[in-house]
Amino acid sequence: MQVVKFVNKFRARIFLNEDLMVKKENRYFLLNKKHKKLKGLITKDFFYAGLYLGKVRNKRFFPSFNLLKMIAEKRSNKVIVDKKTEWLFICGRDVFKRGIIKVVGSGRKGDYTLVLNTHRECLGFGRILHDLNKMEDKDAVAVKNVLDIGDFLRREKGQP
């Protein structure tokens, strides 16, 4: 399943009860037990239900920020960044080595990592471009921005 595959990229383990997961076209949702009791209602043509997990487009999985938050609450790959980097990251910029305060989990080149602020709020995720533990150039890009919460503003831009 695409959701589980995505979670594994962060070397995280989260329990997603497949009985409570529903797919609507290309989007995945996680219901709660109360919703499950209303199963008759859910099978009707809903637009959104429970917790949105993400969507598949062109065979790629695009996670929701709910799913990223769930991963961030477990042991997983994370970098904690300073305030300036946090601001730049949510505006769509990459993370420079200088802005990283702490690396949790894998810091290996090519791995995916969540980006968190100092309050441990998940800001998004990115791909590690250089081994974070060996990297010496502090002014080089360490984590390439893939998705950040600024997306909430950008995705509705231009809509009347």
Partner: peptide, 10 residues
């Protein structure tokens, strides 16, 4: 999604 609401069906 932004407010992590999980009890709503739309």
């Amino acid at each position: 999604e932004r407010c992590h609401v999980k009890n709503t069906i739309v």
